[in-house]
C-alpha cells in the first residue's frame, strides 16, 4: 500500500521534526550551553533589561587598519551577538578600537542589536558633546545608549553636560568609570550625590574591595553596575588555568574557568553586567557560556573566592 501523506500526518511530522531539531538545544549541557534563557539584568529604575555578559574592547579591538584582524574581530562580535550579547563598551582612549567596532558593526549590520556604551575621555570639560559626536561617527551609531566619564577625568564638567544630553534624549544613560580600584572614595561621593544610571568599576574574584562599599551603594542608590577587568586583564587565567576546577564547580553552574570568574561576578546582586574582552571566537563562546545555566548562590560565591585564595 502506498504511503499517503495527509495534511494531518504532515503537520504532526513537521511538528516532531521541529522538536527534534530543537531537542539538542533544549537538553544541552547546562553549564556552558546556550540552550537556556540568558541571564538578563534590569537596569535599575527602568523596565529595560540587558544581558549580564557584555563585551569590552580594550586592547582587543585596537588593530588599526589590519584587514585580517578586523575580519577576525568581526567574527568575535558576530559570535557575541549570536550568543545573545548586546552590551559593548569602548573608549576613545583605546586607539583604533572605535573605528574597528564601526567597521564590524557595518559588516554585521549590527547597529540595531547593540547596546552601545563608550566614554568621554578628555580633560577639556567643554568638549563633552564634541567627543560624543566624534565617537558616534566612529562607531556609526546615531547616539550612544550609555556615555560614561572615563576614570573621572574632568568629571564635573562632563557630567553636567551629560545630564543635559540625557534630558534632551541625546543619550539614554549616563555614568562614570574607574578601574584598578582607583579613587574609590571620590567615586562613592559622586555616586551619593549625582543622578547616575551606571557606574563602571573593576571587580573580580581577587579584586573584591568594591563589595564593601561601592556595590552596596549602587544597590542602595539604584545605579547599574558594569564590571571591567573581570579576568584582571587576563592574569586570572595565567595564574589559575593550569589548576583544576573544584569538585563542586558543577553545582555552582560552572564548567570552565571563564564561567568560574564571570559567574562569580554576575551572581552579585548589585552587578548588572560584566564586560570581558577577547580577540578569539572560542574565548567569546566560553565567556558567553557564563550567561547561561545556574548562577552560584551566596554560599557558593564564598566557596569560589576561598578556593581561588587557596590555590
Amino acid at each position: 500500500m502506498a504511503n499517503q501523506i495527509t495534511r494531518r500526518k504532515f503537520l504532526i511530522s513537521s511538528g516532531l521534526a521541529g522538536i527534534a531539531l530543537k531537542a539538542p538545544m533544549l537538553f544541552a549541557n547546562t553549564s556552558g550551553s546556550t540552550a537556556l534563557s540568558p541571564t538578563m539584568r534590569r537596569i535599575p529604575g527602568t523596565d529595560e533589561s540587558i544581558p549580564a555578559i557584555g563585551m569590552g574592547t580594550w586592547i582587543t579591538f585596537n588593530v588599526g587598519g589590519d584587514e585580517q584582524l578586523i575580519t577576525q574581530r568581526t567574527e568575535v562580535l558576530k559570535t557575541f551577538f549570536e550568543l545573545g550579547g548586546t552590551v559593548v563598551d569602548g573608549s576613545p582612549m583605546y586607539g583604533s578600537a572605535a573605528d574597528v567596532m564601526g567597521e564590524a558593526l557595518n559588516a554585521l549590520d549590527g547597529h540595531d542589536r547593540i547596546f552601545a556604551a563608550t566614554k568621554i575621555w578628555t580633560g577639556d570639560e567643554s568638549a563633552t558633546r564634541a567627543e560624543a559626536a566624534r565617537s558616534s561617527r566612529r562607531w556609526g551609531v546615531d547616539r550612544f545608549d550609555l556615555l560614561q566619564v572615563h576614570n573621572l577625568l574632568g568629571w564635573q564638567g562632563h557630567l553636567e553636560t551629560l545630564k543635559q544630553m540625557r534630558a534632551n534624549g541625546e543619550v539614554r544613560y549616563i555614568g562614570i568609570t574607574t578601574s584598578h580600584g582607583r579613587r574609590h572614595r571620590e567615586f562613592a561621593q559622586i555616586m551619593e550625590r549625582e543622578p547616575l544610571d551606571f557606574v563602571q568599576l573593576t571587580y573580580n574574584v581577587l579584586d573584591r574591595e568594591v563589595e564593601d562599599r561601592l556595590l552596596p551603594l549602587a544597590q542602595e542608590r539604584g545605579i547599574g553596575v558594569i564590571v571591567n577587568r573581570p579576568f584582571q586583564g587576563g592574569s586570572l587565567f595565567r595564574r589559575f588555568q593550569s589548576e583544576p576546577l573544584p569538585d563542586w564547580a558543577g553545582e555552582a553552574g560552572v564548567g570552565n574557568w571563564a564561567e568560574f570568574f564571570l559567574k562569580y561576578i554576575i551572581s552579585h546582586p548589585a552587578v548588572t553586567c560584566a564586560i570581558p574582552a577577547t580577540s578569539k571566537v572560542e574565548h567569546m563562546k566560553e565567556n558567553m557560556g557564563a550567561m547561561y545555566g545556574t548562577l552560584p548562590d551566596a554560599s557558593q560565591r564564598q566557596r569560589m573566592a576561598g578556593y581561588v585564595r587557596s590555590l
Partner: peptide, 14 residues
C-alpha cells in the same frame, strides 16, 4: 601595561 593599548599579535603583524 596600562599605557599599551594593543597586544603583541597586532604589533608583530605591523
Amino acid at each position: 601595561q596600562d599605557f599599551v593599548m594593543f597586544g603583541p599579535q597586532v604589533f608583530l603583524r605591523l
